[in-house]
Amino acid sequence: MQITVTVNGAAHTREVEPRLLLVHFLRDELRLTGTHWGCDTSNCGVCVVQLDGQPVKSCTVLAVMADGREVRTVEGLAGAAGLDPVQQGFSDKHGLQCGFCTPGMMMTCRALLDRNPDPSDTEIRVAISGQICRCTGYENIVRSVRAAAEMERAARVEVEEVQA
């Protein structure tokens, strides 16, 4: 069937089988391979993307269910102004090693900061508790998100000072 999904701001229309998983739609149809997959049972979370702003496991969403909706992937994180603070935080604080879980982690953490600009360490850990990282022991992911929150806080203060 024909679907139109808006991915990172651009509408894509494709003819797909109903059983096509969203992760394969992104990776195979749109060649956006930044979103990975790592299990068959919705447990690992390396496939997380945002669907209408909410982090979801794209291995457990059918592409047809995303018809008419908005998807944001890791490829849509950086903007014209450069890296998203979450990306910068992961780079600054060594929040990744092999990089395989990183896109999913960053999409979840971006959504967390959008909802809660100043999360505690526990809130960060809860937010990523459905996603497995085998390299970092999570410590530096937590630090990365904290650093991103701090960058955004500093940016807000700067804007407020300019406005004042």
């Binding site: 391979t33 930044g34 997959w37 490829e75 994180l77 890296l83 060594h94 990089g99 990183t102 896109p103």
Partner: peptide, 21 residues
């Protein structure tokens, strides 16, 4: 120092086996 390889990973530009077509 920050890792040189991270520039591609944080942008989703890593190239893993299943990314290759």
């Amino acid at each position: 120092m920050r890792r040189k390889e991270d520039a591609r990973f944080i942008r989703g530009q890593g190239r893993y086996l299943d990314d290759i077509a």
